[in-house]
Amino acid sequence: MALAEAFSFDDVALVKDGHRILDGVSDHIHKGATTAIIGTSGSGKSTFLRLLNRFEEPTEGKIRLDGRPLDSYDVHALRRRVSLVAQRPTMLTPSVGQEVRVACPTLSDAEVLQLLKRVALPDMALDRATSTLSGGEQQRLALARSLAVGPEVLLLDEPTSALDEHSAAAVDAVIRSLVTEDLTVVLVSHDLDRVVELADKVLVLENGRLVERGGPRDVRYLR
């Protein structure tokens, strides 16, 4: 059965300061699937991800979500629906409990603990100082903070690249468990082994152009 489209791109380009960062990108991202964006450094991967929550705006072409132009949605509602987790976690509040509630202050303690369990931090005290957490724990807390707003799509920009091996493995395990849920995940990664393991579909960017697409075992870039 064909999967429904979440995002579709129609000849999308982005020109910034005279540089063509993305050029002629046309494809789609399936609902409930994990799509990996790969390519060399500077190929436009992160910019592509930032188009999906409107942190960037295409200068040409159209992006649609559920068939509607992305810019026809209320931008704040869109960003709750399509949540971006950055490469380096930034803690916004002093304590773990406050951090999960930063965008949803009405969450109960039980709901916060449930979210912490989803990101494999089940025994974390809510009054623990965020500054005392390891990089991996901070990244998982950032994931819990994003999950708290109830997104349908998670955008993950190199979520483990700033972490040591041990922390990266813990974050990886959480991402693996999240992709089995009903979430649509779009993942930018340079770790090709992880992409093969996690992704249902791979888009390969090169100098801002989409040069390959397909299953992780089909694209030549991963062979």
């Binding site: 949540s83 930034t90 916004l92 707003v149």
Partner: peptide, 13 residues
């Protein structure tokens, strides 16, 4: 900027 964008990414104005 990372702090402000992290908040915007959560749907804040």
């Amino acid at each position: 900027r990372p702090d402000i964008e992290a908040r915007l990414a959560l749907g804040m104005t």
